[in-house]
């Protein structure tokens, strides 16, 4: 199982918020045994998807200076099940960014209906050793689903086709 839980970034405002989408398909490996008769997306993976779009937003806003690692999660609610065929729209809103850490709140929707929300998610900012920076940056570019070009710059929808 690849541990990238965002397919595409559809909206981004530096320092404010990021919106990504995740298509949930029956071919996902986590549907094996979760569950045998009724495939339901594991709830912690929705948290992870929100944490990834939040971490992505922080990393791009701070020009990849840090890698954001989850330290605390509070006030999480799950309102309904997520099933294969659903398209999750994941929205992370930044509450604060500082040198030591960052705080976001998150909301996941399917067809405009809220399926999960996170009240507060706190990241610690870790300095990345220089020799690993290239891998970290590659990961964020990969997970942007074409929103960033190979150098990590934002791509506007009209120019996307030319850069690929």
């Amino acid at each position: 199982m690849r541990f990238y839980l965002i397919d595409k970034v559809i909206h981004f405002e530096a320092g404010k918020r990021g919106v990504g989408i995740k298509n949930v398909t029956l071919a996902e490996e986590f549907f094996i045994k979760h569950y045998d008769r009724t495939p339901l997306m594991p709830e912690p993976l929705i948290i992870e998807a929100l944490a990834q779009i939040g971490g992505w937003t922080i990393a791009v806003s701070t020009h990849y200076r840090y890698v954001a690692i989850m330290l605390r999660i509070d006030n999480v609610r799950f309102y309904r099940y997520v099933r294969p065929g659903d398209q999750l729209v994941l929205q992370a809103t930044i509450l604060s960014i500082s040198e030591n850490g960052s705080l976001i709140e998150g909301r996941a929707e399917v067809n405009g209906e809220v399926v999960a929300s996170i009240g507060r998610l706190m990241y610690g900012n870790y300095q990345v050793p220089d020799h690993l920076k290239v891998f970290i940056k590659k990961g964020y570019i990969y997970a942007s689903g074409g929103f960033l070009d190979r150098e990590g710059n934002e791509v506007h929808q009209g120019t996307l086709r030319n850069t690929l």
Binding site: F3, Y4, E43, L45, M70, L132, K138, G139
Partner: peptide
């Protein structure tokens, strides 16, 4: 484990949310 390939490249640690899944 499959998830250690991407989490993280050259720094394998078990994702926190999978610990939450194990707890649940």
């Amino acid at each position: 484990e499959d998830f250690l390939a991407d989490h993280f490249p050259r720094f394998p640690v078990m994702p926190g949310v999978l610990q939450l899944e194990a707890i649940s």
